[in-house]
Design a protein around this nucleic acid. Sequence first.
DNA 1: CTTCAAAAACTGGTCAGACCAGTGGTCTCC
DNA 2: GGAGACCACTGGTCTGACCAGTTTTTGAAG
Lengths: 252, 252
Amino acid sequence: MAISQEISYRLERLILDGGLAPEQKIPSERQLATRLGVSRAVIREALHELQGRGVIETRHGKGSFVASMVPGANELGEQSPLMHLFEGHPRTLFDLLEVREQLEGQAAYLAAQRATRLDRHRITKAFRALEDTDPLSNARLDHGFHLAIVEASHNPVLVHVLNSLKNMMLLTVQASVANLNPREEMRKKIVRQHRQLYEAVIAGKPASAQKAATAHVRFVSEAMRDMEKDGGTLIRLPVNQEAANEYSRAGT
Amino acid sequence: MAISQEISYRLERLILDGGLAPEQKIPSERQLATRLGVSRAVIREALHELQGRGVIETRHGKGSFVASMVPGANELGEQSPLMHLFEGHPRTLFDLLEVREQLEGQAAYLAAQRATRLDRHRITKAFRALEDTDPLSNARLDHGFHLAIVEASHNPVLVHVLNSLKNMMLLTVQASVANLNPREEMRKKIVRQHRQLYEAVIAGKPASAQKAATAHVRFVSEAMRDMEKDGGTLIRLPVNQEAANEYSRAGT
DNA sequence: CTTCAAAAACTGGTCAGACCAGTGGTCTCC
DNA sequence: GGAGACCACTGGTCTGACCAGTTTTTGAAG
C-alpha cells in the first residue's frame, strides 16, 4: 500500500480515537514530513485524502484542522455512501426529487388502495393540523402529512426508502415548505395540492392520488430550480447535523 | 479556491453527469497535467481527494478508474436498518418488488431519454452477452443488463437506491432468473421482455421503455408469487453473506 | 513463421528543493 | 499609541528527477 494511504489512515485513526480533538490544529505539513520521515508531497496527498473524506479542513496560511464532525453523534449510523455526493453538487438534489416524485406517487397510489380506517384517521388528523398554518412548525407538519400517507401504503420498503431520501434532503437544503411558503401565491398552490392529494387518498382513488402526489413533488422541484436560477442561495451545505437529526426525529 | 480543489470538483462533476462511466479509465496523471496546464502534483492531490471520498480508485502501474458508485464498499450487512424487516417476513420481498417495479420503470424512462453513445454501447454489450444463454452465469448477466440501463439514467440517487434494493433481494432469495429460467416458457417470455426493454431504450422511447421495465418486474414478481403459492420453497433467508457479496460485485 | 523472454514505454509513487501566496506577529518610525 | 514595513510562519504550486509496478513492443531463438 502507498505510504500516503498509510499516513492518511494513521491520522484518521488518531482523530477518531480521540487523539486529536475537533477544531484542533494538525501539525504543519513540513513538521509532519520531517517527523514521519517522508517528503512533503506524500503528506499533502494524505491530507487531501482526509479532506475528501471530510475528516479535516485546510486553510491557506493557517493550517489544517480536525473537522468538527461530532465523534459519537452518529447514533443512527449516518455516513451514507451517498452523502458525499451532495457536497458541492446541488444537482444531486434534483436527482433526489426526481426519484421522490416517483415514489411519493406510488405511495399515494397504494395508500388510496390500502388505507385502513385508522390510516384515514391519522391522515385526516395530519391534514387538519397542516391547515392551521403555523409558518414556523410548518415544515414538520408537512413532513407528518406526507409520512402518514406513505405509511398508509403498508409497504415498509417504501416507507424506509422515502424516509432515507427525505433525511438526505434535510442535510442539504431546508425543507421545501420553509423555502417556498414565504411566497404567498406559492403557499396557496401547495395548500391546494395537499388538499387534492388528501381527498384522493381518502376517497380511495389511486390514480388521482398518484397524480396529485407526483404533481406536488414536481411543482416543489421546479420551484426550487427556479429559485436557484434566480440567484437565491437555496442550497446550504454542511448543515448542522444535530438540527437535521432532531428535525427528522420530530417528524417521525 | 485551490486549483487542486477546482480540478477535483470538475472531475467529480464530470463523473456524476455521466461524462465518465463507472469502471472507465481516467487519463493518466501526466496527460491531465499537460491538458489542464498544471503540475502533476496538483493533479495527484485532486485525485487523492476523489479517492478519499470513494469516487475513484487508483492502481499502481495501471491508472485511476471511476469507482462504480454501487460497489460492495458498502458492507450492506450490518447497519442497514431495513435488513431486520426481512427476518421471517417473506412478504417484504414483494414489497421490495413493488418498489422496484416503479423505480426500474423510471430508470428505463430516463435511460431512454439520456443515454449517451457510450451508455448505448454498454447496454448493447450487456444485452448481447445476455443472449448467449449460459444458464449458470445468467443471473449476473441479467443483473449487468439492468444495471447498465439504470446507470444510463444518469441519476446517482436512483442508481444507489436500486442497488440497495437489489442487494437486499440477494440476501433473501435467489435471483429471479435462477428460479424462473428452468421453466422454458418463462425463459422465453423473459427474453422477449428484455428485448423489448432493450429496443425501447436504444430507440430513445421513454414511455415504451418504462412500460417494458415495469411489466418485466411485475411479471417476475407475479411469477414468484405463483411459485410460492404452489408450495415451492422460494424464499431462502439467511443466505450466505459472502456469496451474496461476491455475486453483487461480479454483476458490476 | 511462431514462441517467448528481454527491453522499452507506459502507469502511479516518492523525493528534493525552490518559489508563490495568504496569515499573523513584531518592531520600528512617525 | 497607531500605522506600516518586515519577517516568520502556514499552505499552494512548480519542476525534474528517480523508483516501482504493468503493458506493449521487439527481436532473437527455435
